[in-house]
Design a protein around this nucleic acid. Structure first.
Lengths: 243, 243
DNA sequence: GCCCGCCCGACTGTCTGACATACTGGGCCG
DNA sequence: CGGCCCAGTATGTCAGACAGTCGGGCGGGC
């Protein structure tokens, strides 16, 4: 061990210069999740080269990465396309997410420090005030989504299981993607708030069972709403254009 | 080869010529899971080029893929390394896997066809007879692992949620990887058998709750055993060499 | 007039070679 | 003896090239 043992490990320099490849990955991921690249759209390497300014090799590595993340599908000899989620796939994703958030909630209630519980409550408060804000509807929804992201950060950090976080991230991304086809009912904010309140309340009471249950209920409700928008579409395909 | 339209759809040609990249990915993945590439080992691109015979571009795409699968980590400017699982990471993985298999078992009990249940039972029977076999210990263990893989195939197919399968695959791979450091107690086969029996029995009884519980118990037991081997090692690192 | 088969353009899959940059280890100098 | 500098090593990224495949359009045959 060369590392001079004093209190090393906490003073790492933040590695400012991210590899180009990762920057591109982030940019593309954002573009997909923002629907600037829409589900079903082909990702032609040459176009991406022009748009991003990096070389083909880099682009291809990025595409592999996004493929593994489940955001793009690759058709052999045809290349990458932005994933289109089937209704069934979306339902399956929600099912897993239900379990996962339930687990996270239970663990949070069992293991988190009082500090973390307090922090979680604070995030919920912020969420409430974001809801109260009188911006335009669009504005408010965006704000709430952002705040909710931070809520989830605390939530998944506090449960003490890092694997949950990384898996949840992937699920979350794809679920978000699903809203492409639905786009329908964006706001059921009040309901969301009370569901989350229930989760945090159970956590504050240090009641793991209740927390798990509440978290599951929350995702199930979200699933109902989310899937509803897909119902109108065909049985199991995801035909975005031409009827 | 102009597929004459008679009863097409069932006679797909199995796409024998997989993209080179995927073959290489498979080979490397196998090598990692077989510990021919051991945890902590550096994966130097030039070496891999020599060993696999493909070009650097291809190798790099493969490494990205494996990175995303969680089998290798990349240290910036230093390259890829076969992952070394921390005791905590392993524990976290088991926690998630517990939930996941519990969910799968519940869904299986709820949704699978009688046919599928029967098939599952058959796999368990095969597992039993593999256990009875009087091969060398090593031989038997290998056989049981193979059979168990097939059991899981049926199990995860029958639960009807494809997302579970893909996530479980990833977890499974990394958990297997963990045995690198432990290597300790490979066989607790009898215990395993009875636990699985319990799961399938509950499924046959179409009792989702019991099935979920039994499946969770199974993974928890496996986790205890699996993690035990890691205990002897240092707190949270995974120092494979020199103490 | 319609259908079949051929051909062409568009892309991907893969390879080669090259260059800048960052890390490592070791020898040299003060 | 300790710190500095340097060359070797490996990654990060780019440019260009070429074969193979897929799809669609065009033209000829029936």
């Amino acid at each position: 061990m060369s590392t001079p043992e004093s209190d090393v490990g906490s003073l790492r320099v933040g590695r400012v210069a991210a590899p180009l490849r990762e920057q591109v990955t982030d940019v593309l991921r954002e573009a997909i999740l923002d629907f600037r690249l829409r589900p079903g759209e082909r990702l032609v390497e040459r176009d991406l080269i022009e748009k991003t300014g990096v070389s083909r090799a880099t682009i291809r590595e990025v595409l592999r990465q996004l493929t593994a993340e489940g955001l793009v599908t690759v058709i052999p000899q045809r290349g990458a396309v932005v994933v289109e989620l089937t209704r069934k796939e979306a339902a399956d994703l929600y099912e897993v997410r239900t379990m996962l958030e339930g687990l996270a909630a239970r663990l949070f209630a069992e293991r988190a420090s009082d500090e973390q519980v307090k922090e979680l409550r604070e995030q919920v408060d912020v969420l409430h005030s974001a809801f109260e804000e009188r911006d335009s509807a669009d504005q408010r929804i965006q704000t709430m989504l952002d705040v909710k992201d931070r809520y989830y950060d605390v939530f998944l950090a506090g449960c003490g299981n890092d694997q949950i976080r990384s898996i949840h991230e992937g699920l979350q991304a794809r679920v978000r993607l699903m809203r492409a086809t639905s786009l329908g009912q964006p706001d059921r904010p009040a309901q969301t708030l009370s569901e989350i309140d229930a989760v945090v309340a159970a956590i504050e009471a240090r009641d793991p069972e209740a927390a798990e249950k509440a978290a599951q209920t929350h995702v199930e409700r979200a699933a109902e709403q989310g899937l509803e928008g897909l119902m109108q579409h065909s049985e199991d395909g995801a035909p975005s254009s031409a009827s």
